[in-house]
Design a protein around this nucleic acid. Structure first.
Lengths: 197, 197
DNA sequence: AATTTGACATACGCAGCGTATGCGTAATTA
DNA sequence: TAATTACGCATACGCTGCGTATGTCAAATT
């Protein structure tokens, strides 16, 4: 049996709670998820929860922060794969659309998150996805590929469009909706280009 | 004293409840609003509420439907003011951004609505805003001003971008953010044009 | 005039959150 | 190493608030 320090145990408990909350929130939604059941499933009680996260909201914030990081990392990595920077931006947007098809991300980050925590752009996670897009856009303007635009504004609109599209894609069973959404996304984004297509 | 038929009373009660719910949801949020307090403020009890709307969710749906209609009407009317159809579309988008600055619309339609009722595109109101945008886009493509695009997909992305921008504008105190958002919106939308600017 | 319908009020039960409190073990100090 | 403190977590309690079952009375129907 490995000896475990107190700090290690603490981290493990936090992780167990976040994991349990992640599935519970995804399955039942934030309001529908019971803290009693959630903590019990993690082999703990509500006591642990309030000790670490203050309240139910705090737990959601922690879960959202986790998911937000994972999304940004994956999308940015996909964008990096492209040697062509412009194609990279498009791929990044497409990645958001695909990522947001994940039921966990939809329910927690896109639906319950904003309602409970308020506007995403004010989240302490600083909306890493947004920052990633801004970085990419910045590089594209400096390279003269994209018109000199307000980078933050453009990034927000692009992300908003992509995430909204994702909700649409996810809600419809039609298989070709994903393609329709990505196509339209490319067309819209081309509005930022210096030269067309 | 005017004589009132039973049907008139019914409509009046519904209206009183919807009005009360509208302010309550806007002020405290959906979860934070108490049905007891809400109905009492309207001079009624929860009995009336469950009789007319089934449950709390049903009441929210009714309120959202109301707001959705109002938004679509106002935005479309603003769009119609322009003789130039393309400028009309841009104005319509701009109108959404401005409309969504209304705290009631933000909180109820943009934040709580999706969380409680699910993806807006599945709402029974059929998202009148979306339909309005689609109609405008359809006309523009037929006129050869806009590239032949998937109208529904494009409309969804445009609306998503606009509504997201609105959340941003509302959350920041900066006065010039509204202008930055609308400018970026125009640039993005120009991606749909056959010829540039 | 008798009966039915329907719009609301009243009453009840139960789930679930937050807080106050208690307990035991690991860290700290001497 | 013995005594004390700190802290991670469990237990216990009260309160709010939703949904439902039931009651009531006036309007509509016959």
């Amino acid at each position: 049996m490995t000896r475990r320090s107190r700090a290690e145990m603490l981290e493990e408990t936090r992780a167990k709670l976040i994991d349990a909350a992640r599935s519970a929130f995804a399955e039942k939604g934030y309001a529908g998820a019971s803290m009693d059941e959630l903590t019990a499933r993690a082999g703990l009680t509500r006591g642990a929860l309030y000790h670490h996260f203050g309240d139910k909201r705090g737990l959601l914030a922690a879960v959202v922060d986790r998911l937000d990081s994972e999304m940004a990392a994956r999308a940015h990595e996909i964008g990096q794969r492209h040697t062509n920077a412009w194609e990279g931006l498009l791929a990044e947007g497409g990645a958001y659309i695909e990522l947001a098809r994940d039921p966990e991300i939809q329910r927690i980050v896109l639906l319950d998150g904003p309602a409970v925590l308020g506007d995403p752009s004010q989240w302490p996670s600083q909306n890493r996805c947004l920052l990633a897009t801004m970085t990419t856009l910045e590089a594209l303007t400096k390279a003269g590929i994209v018109k000199p635009v307000d980078v933050e504004a453009a990034a927000r609109l692009i992300n908003g469009a992509a995430l909204n599209a994702a909700l649409w894609v996810a809600a419809s069973d039609d298989a070709d909706v994903l393609e329709r959404a990505t196509d339209a996304f490319r067309q819209l984004a081309s509005g930022l280009l210096v030269t067309r297509d």
